[in-house]
Computed example of a mutant assay.
Amino acid sequence: MTEDREKRALHELMEAAARRGVDLATLIGELQAGPVAEPAPDEDAGLSGAELGIVRAVRAEAAKVFGGADAARAFMMREDPRLDGRRPRDLAAEGIEGAERVLQLLGRIRYGGGA
């Protein structure tokens, strides 16, 4: 990840924290709460810094929705037509807007509106 992309991802995290009225550490803690879906060795290849934190936070939410790490990993790495054929992992890696799209989909799946 280039330094510019890393700075943009960090800036987006800071903006998301400000919108929620919490500090960055609180936001990251909230995103990472819950079952941890550890990645397979190559799943996080090419990610670093804030980008990696965002993807891991979304993967943790997927583990809550699907009930485990294996299902979360499968969801994150599979192209999804509800995300314009993109993989949730790739979309989340682009920053907060992409992560929010994936989290919205997970919410619909959890509550019966997107499965």
Rank of each mutant, 00 (worst) to 15 (best):
L47H: 09
G114Q: 11
F66P: 03
R5D: 14
F66H: 03
R20P: 03
R59N: 05
D4P: 01
P39M: 07
L27E: 04
L105N: 00
A17L: 10
A25R: 15
A99I: 02
A69G: 14
A115N: 12
R86L: 11
G67A: 06
I96Q: 09
L31A: 12
A99R: 01
G29R: 14
A115H: 12
R8D: 11
R87P: 03
S48G: 15
Q32T: 14
M1F: 07
G29L: 07
A37M: 03
E38K: 12
D80N: 15
A74G: 02
T2I: 05
E43R: 04
D80I: 01
A63P: 06
D70C: 00
D90L: 09
V36M: 07
G68V: 10
D84G: 04
E100M: 06
G21Y: 07
R19G: 05
M77D: 12
Q104S: 13
L106V: 01
M1Y: 06
G67V: 03
D23Q: 09
I96P: 00
E38H: 12
G67S: 08
E100D: 12
E30S: 10
E100P: 00
I54C: 06
D23N: 15
I96K: 06
D80Y: 00
F66K: 00
M76G: 06
L13W: 11
M1T: 12
M1A: 13
A99F: 01
Y111C: 05
D84S: 13
E97Q: 11
T26W: 04
R59F: 05
L91E: 09
I28L: 15
E61C: 02
A69I: 06
S48A: 15
A9Y: 01
A57M: 08
L27H: 07
P81D: 13
V102C: 02
D70Q: 13
E79I: 00
G21C: 06
E30I: 06
A72T: 04
P81K: 11
A62D: 02
R82M: 05
A60F: 03
V36N: 08
E94L: 12
R59G: 05
A37N: 06
A17S: 11
I109L: 05
L103D: 00
A60K: 03
I54R: 01
V65H: 05
E30F: 07
M77E: 14
A16H: 11
A16K: 13
M1C: 10
L83Q: 06
E12K: 03
G85A: 06
L24K: 08
V58M: 01
E79P: 09
G113S: 09
A72M: 02
G112Q: 08
A99M: 04
